[in-house]
Amino acid sequence: MTPQLTQRQASLAMMVASSALLALMLAYTLFRSDFPLPADLLKLSTVSVTGLTVLYWRRLEFIRPVFIVASTLFIGVALPPEMVVRPIAQAVLFPPIIALVLGGIRSIIGSTIMVWVILLLRVDVQGMLAPDGILVNALCVTGLVVGRLIMDTARRSAEQQPPKSASVRSATGPSRSSSPTTLLATPSTNRAIFSESGRPGRHCKR
């Protein structure tokens, strides 16, 4: 059986996973010095994301778009240039994935455009960034948008469909109410009615 998650539960799970990931990266910098992200930036990001997660857990719904913008700015600013020039920089998919769960189609497209504009301002357009990185990222984001469309369509169709119990009652109700009336029209009752009237009784004796 597929587990059913509400929008709030899915958003909270994504925020908790983001906080845990940043905490693991920060813990890695305590033992190793070869991590590409600076430790000070990881400390600030871990505290900020954890604070946003706690605020959303306290039912502040405006934290969702704030979290999308914060994750987009984090990837655009914190991603080192040597990671961007690789054929596929998987980290640039993090903002649209968060937007898939926390927002909608506009959030997915907007966060993708924002993070690539920031990276293009920081890194030279030459090399592998323009031909491969943007195209691969565009393909992945297209899949996210299509997946979100399927989710929204399934949700709307489920909301518009009436409950099965109500439809079953409406279909079976009239037949049950009319069954006692049809059972009264039997041959024995008809003979009794005609015999009491007189004329049908004489015809039957002849």
Rank of each mutant, 00 (worst) to 15 (best):
G133Q: 07
P163Y: 09
L120S: 07
Q126Y: 08
S107A: 15
P131S: 09
L119W: 00
I109N: 00
A130I: 09
L135G: 03
P162W: 06
L119Q: 02
S111I: 02
E159L: 13
A154L: 14
V168T: 11
R148L: 06
S157M: 13
I113E: 07
C140D: 04
A158D: 14
R155F: 11
L149N: 03
T142W: 07
A185R: 11
I109L: 15
A185K: 11
M128A: 12
M114K: 00
K164W: 10
L121M: 07
M151G: 06
S157G: 05
V141E: 00
L121R: 02
I108D: 02
A138R: 04
S170Q: 12
T181H: 10
S107L: 00
M151R: 15
L183P: 00
R156M: 13
G147H: 12
S167D: 06
M128V: 09
R155Y: 12
G143N: 11
A185S: 10
I109S: 03
L135H: 05
S157A: 10
V146L: 14
N137G: 08
L135S: 07
V141L: 02
V115R: 03
P131V: 08
R156E: 08
D132M: 07
V115A: 03
T112N: 07
R169I: 06
L183S: 15
G127D: 04
Q161S: 13
L119I: 11
N137Y: 01
I113Q: 09
D132S: 10
I150V: 15
V145S: 04
T182V: 12
S179W: 14
A138F: 10
I109V: 15
G173V: 03
R176F: 06
G110F: 13
D132I: 10
D124Y: 01
S157K: 14
P180K: 06
S177H: 06
E159T: 06
S178W: 12
R176S: 05
L149T: 09
L144W: 07
G133F: 00
I109F: 08
I113A: 15
S170H: 11
G143Y: 12
R122Y: 01
L139D: 04
D152W: 06
I113K: 04
R122W: 01
P180G: 07
R148Q: 14
Q160N: 11
V141R: 01
A138S: 14
